[in-house]
Design a protein around this nucleic acid. Sequence first.
DNA 1: TATTGTTATACTCTATAACTATA
DNA 2: TATAGTTATAGAGTATAACAATA
Lengths: 147, 147
Amino acid sequence: MEDGRPEAHVAAGEVVERLLALTGELHRLLAECAARADLTPQQAMLLRCLGQRRPMHTVAAELSCDPSNVTGLIDRLERRGLVERGPDAADRRVRVLSLTAAGRRVRAELERDLARAAALPAGLSPAELRQLLGLLAKFRPGGAEPR
Amino acid sequence: MEDGRPEAHVAAGEVVERLLALTGELHRLLAECAARADLTPQQAMLLRCLGQRRPMHTVAAELSCDPSNVTGLIDRLERRGLVERGPDAADRRVRVLSLTAAGRRVRAELERDLARAAALPAGLSPAELRQLLGLLAKFRPGGAEPR
DNA sequence: TATTGTTATACTCTATAACTATA
DNA sequence: TATAGTTATAGAGTATAACAATA
């Protein structure tokens, strides 16, 4: 708790502003890439989670949403033949999610598109990119969490 | 500009990963602050736009969404007495949006909460914060855009 | 008793198309 | 003709609560 200095507060407000703007831009970017793959942004995020087979509830945790929500998302992706629900040998309650061949193709295409679209930020040199990565790694919003 | 090196590509993929993760964290943060003010994240973003009175279509542009969408958002906020629709003296087609006294209170509370929650990242010194700001200002996802 | 996943429900968000009232 | 905003509609996302199956 050494920041009672006004500059820290000013910079802090500025960071909020820029980060929320960045979030908006990135979400727009994600939406565009998703749309090119005929997906919604949420479906795209779900597909990105499925690099490996995994049970539903871990996906819900990773997406920070309610499990009942994932049920609906998977329903729509399964109807399109991109995802499958399988049994778990060890625990008959769980449904293991996995990509179909078509799902793997769509996911790979999406990843390529995202890398192409987001990873060529004009105006940043490779050195600056590394610097940004380092700062983002240290940055933890809500890090000052009380209570 | 010494691109073309493999490291640049690796860093690029890493940036996508980190930025999407950051987007998720920030959205969660926004959702939490919004919820404390009894708002949805979208309603919070709309309120943030209304620091000054302004016509609806400029808000739609800033939020990058369809105007018909803003109609619904405003309907709900107006019903709660946070926003008002007023006439424009110069052009009778436009509806000028403005915050009520209650709306200003909620917005101020929200801004304070956001600054508190997001702007005190543990582990970043003031110098690093300034550095981060500079890099974020230069960063333009989709910067490879033609035209 | 607790956990995994689904269903039912209700709401919000979102875009498209058709409409109005202005300009 | 073009623009600002609304309405109607349809669909997607979201959480809550109740539930079945399993642990």
